[in-house]
Design a protein around this nucleic acid. Structure first.
Lengths: 317, 317
DNA sequence: TTGTACGCGTTATCAG
DNA sequence: CTGATAACGCGTACAA
């Protein structure tokens, strides 16, 4: 019909007709079907977001900035939570692809789903995590740098026995942070105590148990470095349970802000990532890719995190 | 083709053919197009979620439970943030409808968008907020009850001068909570001091200013009742700035848990809503409606919130 | 400036 | 059990 033109290229339709059409549209409550339009245009104006958990402060802030900028460009977002579960991640990717999203923003856990996406020639941008030897667009932050900064701060405050609450070492951020920690320690000639390096799987409960045990053992650390906010919460609970005080009895620093960060006392010294940018950059990157699918060259963006010094890491004489 | 049958009704196709088809599917990386399927079936297997802000602890928990159960039923979710902005809300609703979502779960701010949805004969479930005299399915919690409980607790602790941080009184939960507060006060023969009832628009910054001022004035309240977590944070910050202590100098209770609720000291006495249920019930309700569109009767579910007593409201001699 | 025919990738409906 | 044909609601190309 002429209707289609009136909506998409109004300049090619007489003003009178356009008005008439608009009016009837109102009366009928007519809205063009994106699904029919998608079928012929081979574009759905949707993007899929695949991430671990929207309840996590870090990810919900990130998603928010993605949604905002996506909407600006006329895209609506599908959201899928994976809980770091490879199966769920794979399923989400499949579903999204079957819905013919124009592109996918993924905070991946498994290489498999990413490879699948690439084979499917989907438009993809990896976020927060990258895999070596894969040719994909990605946006992440410099975890190595952040960890170095945090470690250097603890060292500058006089800490030598530092406990680390890390993950299993399979994901990029985890590995990079640990590498950063190790580097800073080595640079300062401080030996790392094996028993003070603990894999808590990024889980609150494990961090709780671990910290409780570590702080009751002999030769206990004077400071703790937690790799994410969930483990930080576990650590804080353990410290509370033991009746210890931060930073008088034990110092604590961590990667990312904890929930309620701005009202919690003492203020926790931490590294903060530029979450907004992580969202807008990733979205723009994806949309550029969508609008330019044949481009071969890929881009990797690394944003710098920032050290926020507060009161949770005391100076040791 | 036979392909369609092989996927949808395998029993009507010979096992051999099905196997052959599956094999070729693998090789080609073929996935049926949901958009083409949607066009003919008039079902997209998607639902739209419209809510204020995914960064809000309450809403992201809620959304998570929605997404989980929706996925169980084979639905993928579109997520739209409105920031309580009627225009954005309207736009989101329009977009969602143009994408032909099978139904919409909305935490509405404006009646207009809801009316629009009803005129469009969309499948809708209202969440957290209801409008009088509208015939729609809805799930919310008993805000009146929660506020009564909280107020009664303060009164039982001996408080008479109670400051209230409320919203402008346009939304259902806001009005109900205030009504509950008023009821409990009246029942106990306590007079409400006008200057202690403040509209902070549910905003942290306004609550901060308000509390700072209120606590410096004469005849100041001995306890504060905040209507949501954002205002609670503002209140806590103000209390900190004034160098006061909770609950020694001022008692504080609030609706909903604050972020970091489980590590914040002192523990804040609050009312908690059954968020998971709010999500699963709403989703089930919507899906039932989708699968049974001609049903006329609507249902309104009201879930009971729970009072969680902690240490933030002290006993007055 | 407006109308017509065709195709997008499925499913539904008949035939075979 | 399998194949052919017509929709679904829109955009595109071309004709009027």
């Amino acid at each position: 019909m002429t209707v289609s033109r009136a909506l998409n290229t109004p300049q090619k339709v007489s003003a009178k007709t356009t008005r008439r059409i608009r009016k009837v549209m109102e009366e009928l409550g007519y809205q063009p079907s994106q699904v029919a339009r998608s079928l012929v245009k081979r574009r759905t104006n949707t993007i899929g977001i695949v991430m671990p958990d929207i309840k996590n402060t870090f990810f919900n802030s990130w998603f928010r900035s993605v949604e905002d900028s996506a909407r600006q460009f006329g895209y609506t977002t599908f959201l899928c939570n994976t809980d770091e579960n490879p199966d769920d991640e794979m399923k989400s990717v499949r579903t999204l692809l079957s819905h013919r999203v124009d592109g996918i923003l993924i905070v991946p856990h498994s290489e498999e789903s990413v490879r699948y996406l690439m084979r499917a020639k989907a438009n993809v941008v990896l976020v927060d995590r990258v895999f070596d030897s894969m040719n994909v667009d990605s946006v992440s932050t410099d975890h190595y740098y952040g960890a170095v900064k945090l470690t250097e701060h603890m060292i500058a405050q006089g800490h030598k026995r530092i406990g680390v609450l890390k993950g299993p070492g399979v994901l990029f951020p985890d590995r990079e942070r640990y590498r950063g920690f190790g580097h800073a320690m080595k640079e300062n000639g401080i030996e790392v105590v094996r028993e003070h390096i603990r894999n808590c799987e990024f889980k609150e409960s494990l961090a709780f148990d671990t910290v409780k045990e570590m702080l009751q053992a002999g030769n206990r650390p004077t400071a703790l470095f937690s790799f994410n906010s969930l483990m930080t919460i576990g650590a804080i609970k353990a410290i509370n349970v033991l009746g210890m005080k931060i930073p008088a009895d034990i110092s604590l620093v961590c990667y990312d802000a904890i929930p309620g960060n701005d009202i919690f006392t003492p203020g926790i010294t931490h590294v903060i990532q530029p979450i907004e940018e992580l969202g807008t950059d990733a979205t723009k990157m994806l949309i550029r890719r969508i609008e330019n699918p044949k481009r071969k060259a890929t881009e990797e963006i690394f944003l710098k995190p920032k050290l926020v010094i507060r009161e949770s890491c005391r100076k040791i004489p």
